[in-house]
Each structure stands twice: as structure tokens, then as C-alpha cells.
């Protein structure tokens, strides 16, 4: 039956492991933002080859399960002979995968902006790079904040998959804990609780930001 002491005891190691979950999700979303912005810019550019490549990128990384992407990247590093920590492979894969989704979030946000804004900026002689950094992106960021927080929640959940390449985040740590205590039920429910708390906090943050930035 369900044992409360075992359940409470399993929180300590799992909360320690939550550092890695947060690290991977946050670095993943940062990398995803950087690459996603570039992909989005490529998708909206006037160069057809760039547009096609960006569309291919989005369709590939959204079409292939993250777990498969993770293994492909993990093993390809070994084949090429690059010796990097598994954490790097994890962050990189999560970030690349997020970039496909984030570029679509940007695209939606930019499509929601009145076209006249960019045209006006060009008309008064702004450089294209200035139009992006001063007119389009600041507004797009505001519009897409809730969607980005939502993406971060998805990444926190997706980061559980990096346990298969041996990173001691919450899920992996709970596997280890379950193996030593022989009480998988309590341990995994504790792990679920920690994920739930993280995500409830994030969604509260998302609602707050949505409220703050509402025009």
C-alpha cells in the first residue's frame, strides 16, 4: 500500500535533481529562441531557397519524435568522435526541437502585427536590421509571451526524455530512487508532484505576464 514516509523521503533527492530539469529546459528554450528567431527570419525572407530550407527544418523537427532526435544526436556525436557531455547533447536536441516550435510562434505573432508598422519603419529609412530589432521583435515578443511560457512548460515535461541518455534529472533520479527503495509507486508519484509544482508555477507566471502585457 501507499507509504507516506517513503513518499516524503523521496522528495529530497528528486528536488536536487530538479536543478538539471530546470537547467536543460531553460537552456533549451534560450537556444530555441536564438535558432527559432533565425529560422523564422529565414521563413519570412525573400530568398526562396532559404524559405524552403526553413520550412523543411520546421517540418522535420516537428515531425520526428523528440526521443528519436535525442538518440540520433547522441549517437552521431559518438560516431563523429566528438566527446561532449551528455548534458550538452540533451540541451542541444531540446533546443533544436524547440526552435521549430518557437519559429512558428514567432511567425504567428508577426503575422498578427499590423503590416503598416514595418512599412512605416522602412518608409522613414530604417535599416532592415533596425526594423527587426526595434519594431517587429519587441512587439512580437509581447504578443507571444504566453505561448513561450507554454513552450517552456512543454520543455520541462519533454526534458524527462533525456533520462534515457543518462542525465540525472528528475525522472532519472526517480528511477534510481525506485530501484534502491523498491517503492516505485511512491517515488514516481513524488516525481510527478515536483513536475506538477514546477508547471503550475510556470502557468501562473504565464497568466501574470499575459495580464501585465495585455493592451
Amino acid at each position: 500500500m501507499f507509504s507516506i514516509p517513503v513518499f516524503l523521503d523521496s522528495f529530497e533527492p528528486l528536488i536536487w535533481a530538479a536543478r538539471y530539469t530546470l537547467l536543460i529546459s531553460v537552456l533549451g528554450i534560450v537556444l530555441g529562441l536564438v535558432i527559432g528567431t533565425l529560422i523564422c527570419a529565414a521563413r519570412l525572407s525573400s530568398n526562396m531557397v532559404l524559405r524552403k530550407l526553413a520550412a523543411l527544418w520546421v517540418s522535420f523537427f516537428r515531425g520526428v519524435p523528440l526521443l528519436v532526435q535525442l538518440l540520433v544526436f547522441y549517437y552521431s556525436l559518438a560516431v563523429i568522435g566528438i566527446d561532449v557531455p551528455a548534458t550538452f547533447a540533451a540541451v542541444f536536441t531540446v533546443g533544436i526541437c524547440a526552435s521549430a516550435y518557437i519559429s512558428e510562434i514567432w511567425r504567428g505573432a508577426i503575422a498578427a502585427l499590423p503590416k503598416g508598422q514595418a512599412e512605416a519603419a522602412v518608409a522613414i529609412g530604417m535599416k532592415p536590421s533596425d526594423v527587426w530589432t526595434r519594431i517587429i521583435l519587441p512587439q512580437a515578443v509581447t504578443i507571444s509571451l504566453p505561448a513561450l511560457i507554454n513552450e517552456l512548460i512543454l520543455l520541462v515535461k519533454a526534458s524527462s526524455l533525456v533520462s534515457v541518455v543518462g542525465i540525472m534529472e528528475i525522472t532519472r533520479a526517480s528511477q534510481a530512487q525506485a530501484a534502491t527503495t523498491f517503492r516505485p509507486l511512491e517515488v514516481y508519484i513524488a516525481a510527478a508532484c515536483i513536475y506538477l509544482i514546477i508547471n503550475l508555477c510556470l502557468s501562473a507566471l504565464g497568466r501574470y505576464l499575459e495580464h501585465r502585457t495585455a493592451i
Partner: peptide, 17 residues
């Protein structure tokens, strides 16, 4: 709010308890 993988672990490994 919880990962699918953890839900599966609760069901498959925790369920028998």
C-alpha cells in the same frame, strides 16, 4: 502538468503496488 513518461512509470512500475 506531468510528463507522459512519468505517468507511464507510475502506471507500469507503481501500479503493481
Amino acid at each position: 502538468g506531468t510528463p507522459f513518461l512519468v505517468q507511464l512509470f507510475v502506471l507500469y512500475y507503481g501500479g503493481p503496488l
